[in-house]
Design a protein around this nucleic acid. Sequence first.
DNA 1: ATGAAAGCGCTAACAG
DNA 2: CTGTTAGCGCTTTCAT
Lengths: 355, 355
Amino acid sequence: MGNANRQPTTISDIARLSGVSKRTVSRVINNSPKVGKATREKIQSVIDELNYRPNAQARGLAAGCSYLLGLIYDNPDGLYIDEVQRGVLSVCRGLGYELVVHPCDWRSDTLTSEAIGFVNRSKLDGVIVLPPISEDNDLAGAFRKAQVRYVRLAAIALDTADRVVIANERSAVAAMAEYLVNLGHRRIGYIAGPEGRKSTRERLEGFCDALAKHGCAPCEDMIARGAYTFESGIACARTLLERPEPPTAIFASNDEMAAGVIYTAQEMGMKVPGDLSVAGFDDSMLATKIRPSLTTIRRPVREMARLATKKLIASIDGREDEARVGVFLDPVLIIRDSTRSIHWWREVNSHPEGS
Amino acid sequence: MGNANRQPTTISDIARLSGVSKRTVSRVINNSPKVGKATREKIQSVIDELNYRPNAQARGLAAGCSYLLGLIYDNPDGLYIDEVQRGVLSVCRGLGYELVVHPCDWRSDTLTSEAIGFVNRSKLDGVIVLPPISEDNDLAGAFRKAQVRYVRLAAIALDTADRVVIANERSAVAAMAEYLVNLGHRRIGYIAGPEGRKSTRERLEGFCDALAKHGCAPCEDMIARGAYTFESGIACARTLLERPEPPTAIFASNDEMAAGVIYTAQEMGMKVPGDLSVAGFDDSMLATKIRPSLTTIRRPVREMARLATKKLIASIDGREDEARVGVFLDPVLIIRDSTRSIHWWREVNSHPEGS
DNA sequence: ATGAAAGCGCTAACAG
DNA sequence: CTGTTAGCGCTTTCAT
């Protein structure tokens, strides 16, 4: 009160008003243990009273860091991005980090140099990389060479434990396969994502392996290749359903395509789930807003983002051991109205007999 | 070549290697005109050769800026957020600015102090504020008092021209009203958003005024109050459709609620658009993925974000006149399959007779 | 047109 | 436990 100065408070003000040196104030700011209790409290009270906040630029310049994290992605799914950002920020809060976002073009030849430039320009302390860019090992290599800390979100183990957080999609799709088999389905269609992504293969293999394990011949001609779009879901559904022996269930590897499948089936006069069970992947906003609501798989996106951020900050702080804990997170199978037992009126026993 | 040093190049390196002082290098970096042509070229060549990039932290600390913009919002719609971010970044690119994101809680009592803290901590050069927080005049006032530059995205003119970009929602909903009237509808239901937001009122008034202008008694008992959710759309639709004289068309003030209306109508055995026309607002991803596809209104979100960013940076650069140009952007009416003439088999003449 | 020198606000040896 | 003293890399008066 009184000196309502326009100039923001600095560490020198705090030092002067507390009757100590800047060094000691600095210690309090940085939670150094080597400060007397009384001194610390005195300083803290002055800090609180003036609502002092250290200047991150100056801090960074002196300490060689920025308290800035970066988020690098080329993913058209705004909901996924938003979810990740909120997860990241939920752990940044209180740790004093801020998040700088960087959507970019996966296919650009300058992806790597741009990414490095992004990090250097703002002196980012670390970056989190989202799929599908996270699958780019060249980029990861460039980061390592440039001494840029990073953590990737992925579906498979493509880096060391301190640099990756993995949604165990293989086990998730396996659970889906089992679920469908237990519902009595034997002819099960699969709509894959675009080629070239590792997670596409991971989901497909995981699904087929699980089917095989349950005695269903791996689904060779029951596989269609989509593009993660509604329209491609329609096209693939048509292909699958026009076969002489059409599937009784279709698992599309994302919700948009699954929505396309339901639409197509209904257009063709089939009832979902009566004549055809349909399942998706993502638990997107679509899942509960189409009829029937969609059985799907939900990745713990926000949790993954939180974990990735914790790892990254642990690594920045030099707590390398902590940066290594926790890698795999399990997606969960969400059963809604688009799937049904093939003989639902008979009450199928759904206990798996093997294992 | 040769001195592949791990230390990043600094301005001093450039100065030494070019045989000039740091001051002159600084002039070149900042495009000062007062540098001899020969000197400039010499320095530039050294800069290029070493691929030197000035340290943004140091630059900011010395110059009192950060080349960082902030984005403040409390909006659950991830797609909207993502769209805005991409818009903002598309103009940041090349101007050397980065974007720091800050989702927060609208209702928190500490919203203002947190927002100011956010800006001060990272010494942001300016912030863009999204609805509904952008409607908070206390926050805006606090920003002005704290000398924080900002631009708000909004639906009404709640600030000076250099501080706001407006989607003309009033004219957009008026166009929708006109469209529905021209289809022959007279009993038109309206599902409003939650109270307390100015844009809620703006849309409602704009719609009713337009109806009145076309001779439809303003829709008093045809108005239901939703919450921008699918479920609330269902509830409101039920209310509206169970009236003795149900509407022949319903305009829901966002797509989610419109989807709920379509769902409910179909549940009740009505055909959309045969028995009931339905329209939404947002052109969300839902719009093309439900059946029938949704007639709706699309705001130029990305364009608004771009314009807001241009204004903000113009203001930062002191080009105040430039910061004032362009305020209103027009949403567009998108006609799909969920609306139809009330007498569609008769070929209604859709030319408005007034005007 | 160019340079010398004083900081921006903070951290970090290195004493004491 | 606390203070002194240099910088971090850049901008910016003020001279020349």
